[in-house]
Simulated scan of single mutants.
Amino acid sequence: MTWLKEVIGTEKAIIAMCHLQPLPGDPSYDYKKGMDYVIEVARKDLKALQDGGVDAVMFSNEFSLPYLTEVKTETVSAMARVIGELMNDIRIPYGVNVLWDAKRSLDLAAATGAQFVREIFTGVYASDFGLWDTKVGETVRHQYHLHAQDVKLLFNILPEAAKYVADRDIKDIAKSTVFNNRPDALCVSGLTAGEQTDSQILKKVKDTVPDCVVLANTGVRIENLEQQLSIADGAVVGTAFKYEGKFENKVEQKRVKEFMNKVKAFRETAIKA
């Protein structure tokens, strides 16, 4: 049994993304509508996700494009306000992701009581956001400084829009990441949000570190969820739950429910097998 059962309540868990609208300081922030609008959209998306039956939710500043690797204080403050406003509405386990700053994600988790964090914790990358040095040793020490050692760390080992500066095989990355850092999970992604995780890469990672939780991190849809979940221990899902399956749209409860009904049927079949 993995920690997914203990923390989220099930194996083959589906962690749904609650993508926050642009926040103060972001280029696309709508200062006329203000934070009330950000909170309103987040509340509606959260309701659609929970009523649709997802297992857990993760709040992220997905529309803070282009992303920073050293996130500003105003972004974390705005995210904390949103989650604080929604606290009485949250009925399922939840995590946070401050894109792309691991320390600030941990700060937000400590402030809001989040149970897990997804981030780029390890590696040095050439990325769309510049040269990116993660300094995992400092991040984990920061976690203990915050007394947040119970927060589960989900390591994204194939960052979207980034590539290792050194050419490394994914099996070597998975093996060394687990040996050196003891992550709670490895997340395997496609190139961008909504792009399917390569099943062959997913299998290589799981075969290399069979005792570590491995999550399909992008592009899991109703058409491929059985294939992806037959390999991965669970999935992080965002775009598939949006109206017409488009990244920029709001969450549609009908799509969530249809997706989760198929997931639950798959789980029952897997248990019987």
Rank of each mutant, 00 (worst) to 15 (best):
D107V: 13
H147E: 13
V96S: 10
A78W: 06
E40I: 00
K257I: 00
V136H: 01
K250P: 03
V71T: 14
P93E: 08
D89T: 01
S105I: 12
D167V: 01
P210D: 07
K44M: 12
L215D: 08
T192F: 01
G53S: 07
V188C: 02
G9M: 11
Q50K: 05
A111I: 08
E258F: 01
W132T: 05
K264Q: 12
I83G: 03
N224P: 07
R141H: 06
L49T: 11
A273Q: 09
V117R: 02
K250D: 14
Q115N: 04
I39W: 08
G190T: 13
E268S: 07
I15A: 10
E74Q: 14
A216W: 04
A232M: 12
N261W: 02
M58F: 00
D172A: 11
V76D: 02
D150V: 00
L106H: 07
V188N: 04
D233P: 11
S28C: 04
L229I: 09
D198A: 08
E62K: 00
Q196K: 13
D207S: 12
D207L: 08
A193R: 02
E160T: 08
G238E: 11
S230N: 13
I8C: 02
A216I: 13
R118E: 14
V237Y: 02
D207G: 02
G238Q: 08
D45M: 04
K203W: 01
D45Q: 15
R221H: 13
F129K: 10
V140G: 02
D36A: 14
S64A: 15
G123S: 01
A185M: 07
G190L: 07
I90Q: 06
R118A: 10
T139H: 07
I39E: 10
P183F: 02
A42W: 06
K206W: 07
Y125Q: 07
Y94N: 03
T208N: 03
T239L: 06
T197F: 00
A273P: 01
A193L: 08
A114K: 11
V236D: 02
G137K: 06
R255Y: 15
V213M: 04
I170G: 03
H142I: 07
V117Q: 05
T197N: 09
K206Q: 09
P159L: 01
E160G: 02
Y37L: 09
K163S: 11
P159K: 03
A235N: 08
E248K: 09
R91I: 00
A265E: 15
L86S: 10
D107K: 07
A162N: 06
G130T: 10
L86G: 11
S127H: 03
D133M: 07
M58V: 15
A193Y: 05
D233W: 09
K204S: 02
L215G: 04
G130H: 07
F266K: 06
F266D: 02
K254Y: 03
V136S: 14
T134C: 13
Q115D: 03
E223T: 15
V117L: 04
M17G: 11
G190H: 02
L4S: 04
L46Q: 10
P24H: 10
A114G: 09
C18L: 13
D172Q: 09
